[in-house]
Design a protein around this nucleic acid. Structure first.
Lengths: 134, 134
DNA sequence: TGTGCAACCTGTAGCGGCTACAGGATCAAG
DNA sequence: CTTGATCCTGTAGCCGCTACAGGTTGCACA
């Protein structure tokens, strides 16, 4: 039996965040002591760590909730879990492509500022691109 | 002279977003007609497009505000603009590295689900990693 | 047994960057 | 003169937390 402070320390998840997960229904509400304090058991801790791991992997909270549900409900069926992970993987790959474009655009802007000029070419470029066509 | 709808169409920025930028002080408040409607001139439109371009480049709103300020205030000095862009570029590169790690982790999880199994290995892996050490 | 402080509780508000209303005023065309 | 598009303000919601305020417990030590 752990207090919220203890599961926080053991999971690396902020106390406020744990309560937040509970409020949002990501985690089931744990038992309470007579005075109303949350009391977590080993399974509660495992679930919290699972959610934390999902978040570390970049899954949304609703994905984390769904995956935890699948993991808990005996099933553990790839049929449902894999597409969630695959979709997230696809999103990550897509995001990386976007960032790569951004990086190149930023590089060319920063490179434009090689020699010190009173009229910053970078700012000029941003203005140019946004010049009035019509 | 453009209405807010016209600058929205010409800049590709949502009407509500334009008003939001004004509220947040990113853009200066434009003139108004007698009846209180916003009236934008060419410069207003240029500024809006500049901000939009900054946002497209992934700059934060406060960066966009700062860059616009530098671009407007005659100065256009690289000395102030370049570090902002460089810092953002660094952040983008860092973010890409994070995403690359994520992508590999997700790939190995998804790959674990090659052969159909009733006990999804992916979910097992997430649980494993979050197993109770102490 | 008192006392002091750490840890807990609930509820609410804030962050960034929008988006989406509600409920009203105004404009321009038919 | 009516209709419908466009505009106005103000407020609330989204995500995933984080940070309070203001109150109750639990526990160690004198």
């Amino acid at each position: 039996m752990y207090s919220i402070g203890q599961v926080s320390a053991r999971s690396g998840v902020n106390i406020e965040t744990i309560r937040y997960y509970e409020r949002k229904g990501i985690l089931p509400a744990p038992a309470r002591t007579q005075s109303g304090r949350r009391q977590y058991d080993r399974d509660d801790l495992s679930r919290l760590r699972f959610v934390r791991k999902c978040r570390d992997l970049g899954f949304s909270m609703s994905d984390a909730k769904a995956l935890l549900g699948l993991a808990i409900s005996g099933g553990m069926n790839c049929g449902e879990a894999k597409p969630i992970a695959q979709a997230h993987l696809d999103a990550v790959v897509k995001k990386m492509a976007e960032l790569a474009r951004l990086r190149e655009a930023l590089r060319s802007l920063v490179d434009a500022c090689r020699e010190p000029s009173s009229e910053c070419p970078m700012l000029g470029l941003i203005f140019e691109v946004s010049d009035i066509p019509a």
